[in-house]
Amino acid sequence: MDQAIHFAADFPWRSEVALGDVVEAPRTWDVELFARAAHLLGRWNARSTSPAVLARSAFPAGYALRMYAERAVPARGLGPLADDGLWAHPWLACHADLRADLRRLGSCIPAMLDRLDTFVQAMPHGDASPQNLLVPADGPDGFVVIDISFRSPHALGFDLGQLLVGLTHAGHLPAAVLDELADRILPAYLDGLETEGLTGLRDDVAEAFALSVQLRSGFDAIPWEWLDDPVHERDVAERVALARCLVGRALAHVG
């Protein structure tokens, strides 16, 4: 049976539980729930900065994101950005400015990765989207987390990326709310760090959040294969809006 990790709102412990035993509470992902998740992720990440935890990784800081950025992003993101015919598609033709911004950021990928390695590192969840943070009926103030991935140290703030974009990827949250949501989950996450004694990291975490989510989800936000299917016109527009949100936040930190 698949395994999951449970952590309660007061965060006194974590333990493995059988995923088949988890009964989810009927809870909508509203701003309050996003903030609670961000706070607890901050606490979890703070506790995962210890040398003993980091030493359990066989990989250096930023390894998993670096592999994704160097191997997947060129094919899934940078290649399509270079395709003039693709960007002449009626659904994309009016977004030349977005294309230009993405290409500018694409040239900065090595510098972005190096910059992320300079920040405080933690062992993250790795895929902390709402779909992987289950609210259990017998403990609705906490979460059961599943599908842990990207198992190498990453900069504090990395886990906020999937929390932000997960429901938009799934088509359940409009991209128009993402900027406001990002501005709510960042301070909640910082509060979680501070609860565990990590202070004075606001600027670093904000930058790491913006750069890492761009690398993970910004370059390949648009599923190019949808361009051939009329049923996906609205979906593509949402993904364009998602890309604009992430690009705008990343550009604020790239000189």
Results as ranks from 00 to 15, higher is better:
103 R>Q: 11
103 R>S: 05
105 L>E: 09
105 L>W: 06
107 S>P: 00
114 D>R: 04
119 F>N: 05
120 V>L: 14
122 A>H: 10
122 A>F: 08
124 P>M: 07
124 P>Q: 06
127 D>R: 14
131 Q>N: 15
133 L>E: 04
135 V>Q: 06
135 V>I: 14
136 P>A: 08
138 D>V: 00
139 G>C: 06
143 F>M: 07
143 F>K: 07
151 R>K: 00
152 S>H: 02
153 P>N: 10
154 H>V: 05
154 H>R: 01
158 F>P: 03
159 D>K: 08
160 L>E: 03
161 G>T: 04
161 G>H: 03
163 L>H: 08
169 H>S: 00
169 H>W: 02
169 H>T: 00
171 G>A: 03
172 H>L: 14
172 H>S: 08
172 H>G: 04
177 V>H: 05
178 L>I: 14
181 L>Y: 12
181 L>K: 07
182 A>H: 04
185 I>C: 00
188 A>N: 11
188 A>M: 13
194 E>T: 12
195 T>K: 02
196 E>M: 10
198 L>Q: 06
199 T>A: 07
200 G>L: 08
200 G>E: 11
201 L>Q: 02
202 R>F: 02
203 D>A: 10
205 V>L: 09
207 E>Y: 07
208 A>R: 01
210 A>R: 01
211 L>T: 08
211 L>Y: 02
213 V>G: 06
215 L>N: 05
224 W>T: 14
229 D>G: 09
233 E>K: 15
234 R>M: 12
235 D>L: 13
